[in-house]
Amino acid sequence: MQRYLDGEVDTVAAGELLGSALRGGAVVYLGGHLGAGKTTFCRGVLQSFGHAGAVKSPTYTIVEPYQAGGVNVYHFDLYRLGDPEELEYMGIRDYFDNDAVCLVEWPERGVGVLPLADIMVSIEAQGTGRLLAARSATPRGQQILAQLSKYETD
């Protein structure tokens, strides 16, 4: 799936669209440079579950938990992580149960500790906007993207 994002409103809307297909839980990796819109995209995912409050980047806390629409959503930002082993000390595996939605910014910093992503999203600058690309990495991810294509054609 690819989509051109023409600003913050489009980025939030794209997150809401993905969130609408994550009802059974999933691990989503988010790639892109600093300021690409990853946290804005996460705000859209959270809004799809009914979250109406602020969504901040958990750069210093590493994880920000949300309970929205009866779903546990965990927003990770691993930018400041010094070593992937630090994730083991914080009990990272406890967050990744089958029903939780885990949104992971800077997943490359957790290699070897993080579970595989179901969906890998990248947000990159293109012209005056951004290009969002999403691809599946597991059978669950394939189902999610198939559901998204259904939403886009309805």
Rank of each mutant, 00 (worst) to 15 (best):
R3G: 03
Y4R: 14
Y4K: 14
G7C: 00
T11E: 09
V12W: 04
V12M: 05
V12I: 15
A14R: 11
G15T: 02
L18M: 06
G19D: 10
A21S: 15
Y29S: 10
L30N: 03
G32S: 05
L34Y: 09
G35M: 01
G37Q: 04
G37L: 00
K38M: 04
K38A: 06
K38Y: 05
C42E: 00
V45F: 07
L46S: 09
S48D: 07
V55A: 03
V55G: 02
V55Q: 00
S57C: 02
P58Y: 07
T59V: 02
Y60F: 15
Y60T: 06
E64Q: 14
G69E: 06
G70R: 12
V71N: 10
N72H: 14
F76M: 03
L78V: 00
Y79D: 05
R80N: 04
G82R: 09
D83N: 15
E85L: 03
E85C: 01
E86V: 01
Y89P: 05
Y89A: 13
G91L: 10
R93C: 02
D94L: 12
F96Y: 14
D97I: 11
D99V: 06
C102D: 04
P107M: 09
E108P: 01
V111H: 13
V113F: 03
P115S: 09
L116E: 15
A117V: 07
D118W: 00
S122G: 13
S122N: 13
A125G: 12
T128Q: 15
T128M: 12
T128P: 08
L131P: 07
A137G: 10
T138H: 12
P139R: 14
P139M: 05
G141A: 05
Q147R: 15
S149D: 14
Y151E: 15
